[in-house]
Simulated assay, not measured.
Amino acid sequence: MSEGIAALRIRRVVTTRAGGASKPPFDSFNLGGHVGDDPKAVAANRDRLATELGLRPDRLAWMEQIHGRTATIVDGTEPGQAEATDALVTARRGLAVIALVADCVPVLLGDPEAGVVAAVHAGRVGARAGVIPSALKAMVSLGAEPGRMEALLGPAVCGQCYEVPPEMAADVEKHLPGSACDSRTGTSALDLKAGLWGQLADYGVGKIGVDPRCTVEDTTLFSHRRQAPTGRIAAITWIEE
């Protein structure tokens, strides 16, 4: 850390499926508004999330995730959710950026010296396409530096549970080295957390943490592979004011 510069406090939260208003199969703390759940239940859940975080509902930044590589910088003045993007980046204190998942990898990034954070939705397609490099580039444009960044890879489907065709595993491995693996039964599989960890390290990210939970195995979390339709958990990060 540069001399004389105090680190800001960055908060990170990952929700579970418990404690909300949604009914099966979205029971009960579903935060995804695009999965077929009752919009009133989703709104109630999002209001409760804001209350639990100690933030106003308008200080939660949501996005329309499309499994791409677009990263969008937000400052809290936007009239609605960010559209057609898979990463939200901000330098605005007290503005929480959110990624919604139910097997994909949520990645929370932050530079406590620059005061820049990002929430990234990194599924197979987006991870392969380079959503993490896009998020890092956007953070750097706001003054962040990879060596000062901290990353958390949130709960997602693990390599032992994520069976895919061999050609798919080979294709993702080509673009995201370290992802290809064997499933529990010995078939071709993907470990996106491993691939993303390697990518973040290659970009020089200073600290990388991994939540070991598998969304398929842990029934306190939503999993599209285990049960579809289903809800979405949220990975949230913000800079305290």
Rank of each mutant, 00 (worst) to 15 (best):
Pro24Lys: 05
Ser2Ala: 09
Ile98Tyr: 03
Gly32Phe: 12
Pro155Ser: 04
Asp38Gln: 11
Gly147Asp: 02
Asn45Tyr: 07
Arg226Ile: 08
Leu8Met: 10
Asp191Thr: 04
Gly80Tyr: 15
Pro24Ala: 12
Val74Thr: 08
Tyr162Cys: 06
Ser183Arg: 08
Ser2Cys: 07
Thr51Cys: 07
His34Glu: 14
Leu31Cys: 02
Val116Thr: 05
Leu200Asp: 06
Leu142Thr: 10
Ala41His: 13
Ala6Tyr: 09
Ala82Lys: 04
Asp37Lys: 05
Ile233Arg: 14
Asp211Leu: 07
Ala119Gln: 07
Pro39Lys: 08
Val14Asp: 00
Leu152Tyr: 06
Pro229Asn: 06
Leu60Asp: 11
Pro133Asp: 01
Gly198Val: 10
Ala21Arg: 15
Asp37Tyr: 07
Ala119Met: 02
Ser28Val: 02
Gly4Phe: 10
His121Arg: 05
Leu95Glu: 03
Pro212Met: 05
Leu190Asp: 02
Ser134Leu: 00
Leu49Glu: 04
Glu217Ala: 07
Gly178Asp: 08
Glu3Cys: 13
Arg69Asp: 11
Glu83Arg: 14
Asp37Arg: 07
Asp202Thr: 13
Val89His: 03
Ala144Leu: 10
Ala189Asp: 03
Arg11Val: 01
Ala84Lys: 14
Asp111Met: 12
Ala118Met: 02
Lys137Arg: 11
Glu173His: 05
Ala235Phe: 13
Cys158His: 14
Gly130Thr: 12
Ala41Pro: 09
Ser223Met: 05
His67Arg: 03
Ala91Gln: 09
Asp103Arg: 11
Ala41Asn: 11
Tyr203Gly: 03
Val157Arg: 12
Leu49Phe: 14
Val117Ala: 03
Val97Asp: 04
Glu241Ser: 03
Gly110Leu: 15
Ile73Asp: 01
Asn30Cys: 09
Gly68His: 00
Trp62Ile: 04
Gly206Glu: 06
Arg93Ser: 04
His34Gly: 09
Ile10Glu: 02
Phe29Val: 03
Thr72Phe: 14
Ile233Tyr: 15
His67Thr: 03
Ala235Trp: 12
Thr187Ile: 00
Val125Pro: 00
Gly159Pro: 08
Ala61Phe: 11
Gln199Asn: 04
Arg17Ala: 10
Val89Gln: 10
Ala228Gln: 15
Ile73Gly: 01
Met63Ser: 15
Gly154Ser: 12
Ala180Gln: 07
Val116Ala: 03
Tyr203Thr: 03
Trp62Gly: 00
Arg12Lys: 10
Val131Asp: 09
Ala7Arg: 04
Asp86Phe: 06
Pro57Leu: 04
Val89Gly: 06
Ala102Cys: 13
